[in-house]
Amino acid sequence: MENTAINFQELTELALQARERAYVPYSHFAVGAALLCKDGTVYQGCNIENAAYPATNCAERTAFFKAVSEGRRDFAAIAVAGGPAGEAPAAFCPPCGVCRQVMREFCGADFAIVLSDGGKIQAYTLGELLPCSFGPENL
């Protein structure tokens, strides 16, 4: 699953950098994401909370929405790292269901999702994390 333009370790380092910009005054749980386009371009995202909780946006969706708003549609992988703000991640932080569905809108089953606990890396495909999914072709 490794992409030649950037390796998964470099992608997770970019996710950890994005995590530092998270706005999390309520949950104090900071998440960063780095979305790799097939041409090697990377879009970073962090979670952005809101006092009206449903208006909160996850790091993964922030990265996707930034990329899509710039006209991008071809994605290879995303790295995600999260944990208590101010601390190094101590566990893997998989994408929530809403983020997985957004990924499914733009990516196929082979899209790589790379999780980092700050030291180790686990890689999955979107098909593994969202089996039997509903996508644009189902309409």
Rank of each mutant, 00 (worst) to 15 (best):
M103Q: 04
R21C: 06
E13Q: 15
D74S: 14
C132D: 13
A112C: 11
A67K: 08
E10T: 09
V114Q: 01
G127N: 04
R61Y: 02
F29T: 06
S27D: 07
T4P: 00
V42Q: 03
R100Y: 00
G119A: 12
D117E: 05
A22N: 06
F65D: 15
A85D: 12
C58F: 11
G32K: 04
I78R: 00
P54G: 05
S27I: 04
F134T: 13
A59D: 06
F64I: 13
G118F: 10
S116Q: 10
G119Q: 10
P84I: 13
F65I: 01
K66F: 08
R72P: 03
E2G: 11
A91G: 02
P136T: 05
A51N: 11
V68M: 12
I121W: 04
F106W: 15
K38D: 15
R104E: 05
L126D: 09
E20I: 05
P136M: 14
A5D: 06
A91D: 14
C107Q: 02
N50R: 09
N7Q: 06
K38F: 07
Y23A: 05
A112I: 07
L11N: 01
N138Q: 13
V31A: 12
G108M: 07
C93W: 10
A88M: 13
K120H: 15
I113M: 09
E128F: 03
A109V: 09
T62W: 09
V98N: 02
D39S: 11
A18F: 06
G97N: 10
C132M: 13
C107P: 01
M1Q: 10
D74W: 14
C107K: 06
C58G: 12
K38M: 12
S27N: 04
N138T: 08
A55C: 14
G97I: 05
A123R: 04
Y124M: 05
T12F: 02
M103R: 11
E70C: 14
F92K: 01
R19Q: 05
P89Y: 09
R19M: 03
A109S: 15
F29H: 10
Y124K: 04
E49A: 13
C58Y: 06
P95L: 03
T4M: 03
G71I: 03
N47W: 01
L115S: 09
A59Y: 04
T41I: 07
A51I: 05
D39A: 05
E49W: 00
S27A: 11
Q9N: 07
V24Y: 02
R72L: 00
S69V: 02
Q101K: 11
D39C: 07
G135V: 02
A90D: 05
G119R: 11
N7T: 01
G86Y: 12
A34R: 10
E137S: 15
A76D: 03
C58A: 15
F29Q: 06
A76F: 07
E10K: 10
N138V: 09
A63K: 07
V114G: 08
L139C: 12
V80E: 14
A79D: 08
A79I: 09
T56K: 04
F64K: 00
N138K: 07
L11M: 07
E137Y: 10
G135A: 12
E20Y: 00
E70Y: 09
C37W: 01
G40H: 04
N57T: 14
P89E: 14
G82R: 07
P84Y: 14
G45W: 08
G108E: 12
Y53V: 07
T12V: 15
K38Y: 01
A76Q: 00
N7F: 00
I48A: 02
S69W: 01
A67L: 00
L35I: 06
C93L: 08
